[in-house]
Simulated assay, not measured.
Amino acid sequence: MQQGVLYSVTRDISEQIKLEEEQQAVTNELYENEEKLRLILENLSEGVIVANSDQKIVLVNNMANEFFGIEQDDEISANIINHFEIYYPDEKTIFPSQNLPMERALKGESTDDIDIVLLDPATKEKKRILISGRPLVDQNEKVVAVVLTIKDISKYKQLEEELKETESKYRQLIGFKKGGDTVI
């Protein structure tokens, strides 16, 4: 009888050890995948913000922190109007907050490259950005989180304007009118 009990205890311990090893392997794999995701996010040239359905920040990459000028993730609000005044590219017309990608994604709508100008009220610095939003939905089609990406295109737009000015100057120098006809 003792031998049967000993075999049963040994088998139970072996099964327990095997189960613990399997759990450790799963935990290690999850950690490795999380680390890979973190490395990918930190090496993107776009800012990435993930917020839950209550607009609480879940994840922010370094580019987003740099964009907002904030180092602490929990100090960033998912609602961008808490940080900036928002305008259409004409820099005069106020952009309606209900049309921002966060608001639209919370309603289940995806947006791509919404072109807006942000004005930092404290520094009066303007940034021209493209902002996109995607809802993350569960199996019941309920929005559980939102992913925002932010691309600062200020430098590109500045270079574009400078190129237009230079082109206009050279056209005038070589005798082109505004309509594209040469002056004789």
Rank of each mutant, 00 (worst) to 15 (best):
S97I: 07
D112P: 00
K92H: 10
L130C: 05
L119M: 15
I114H: 02
K126Q: 05
L118E: 05
I114D: 03
P89V: 08
P89Y: 08
R128W: 07
D90G: 07
L106Q: 01
I116L: 12
S132W: 01
K126M: 03
A122M: 03
L119E: 14
I116F: 11
I116T: 07
L106H: 02
L130E: 04
S132T: 03
S110V: 00
R104H: 01
A105G: 08
I131N: 09
L119V: 14
T93Y: 05
S132Q: 01
T123F: 12
T123L: 13
D120R: 10
T123E: 13
A122I: 11
E109P: 03
E91S: 12
K92T: 11
P96D: 04
L119Y: 03
L118R: 05
P121I: 04
M102N: 14
D113I: 00
L100F: 09
K126L: 05
T111K: 09
A122W: 00
T93E: 10
P89D: 09
R104G: 02
P89S: 11
Y87K: 08
V117T: 13
G108Q: 06
E91W: 00
A105W: 03
D112V: 10
P101S: 06
A122Q: 11
E91T: 07
E103R: 13
D113K: 15
I129A: 08
K127Q: 12
G108T: 02
D115L: 12
E91N: 13
F95H: 13
Y88E: 15
P89N: 10
A105Q: 03
D90L: 04
I129E: 06
P121K: 10
L118N: 09
T93F: 06
R104D: 00
I116E: 06
I129P: 12
K126A: 00
L106M: 07
P96T: 00
I129S: 06
L130R: 06
K127E: 01
E109Y: 13
K124L: 15
P96H: 03
N99S: 13
K107C: 08
T111Y: 07
I116A: 11
D113L: 09
D112C: 01
R104P: 04
T111M: 13
I94Y: 09
L100K: 01
L130W: 09
E125N: 15
M102H: 04
R104Q: 15
K124V: 03
E109I: 15
P121A: 07
K107D: 09
M102D: 00
P101I: 01
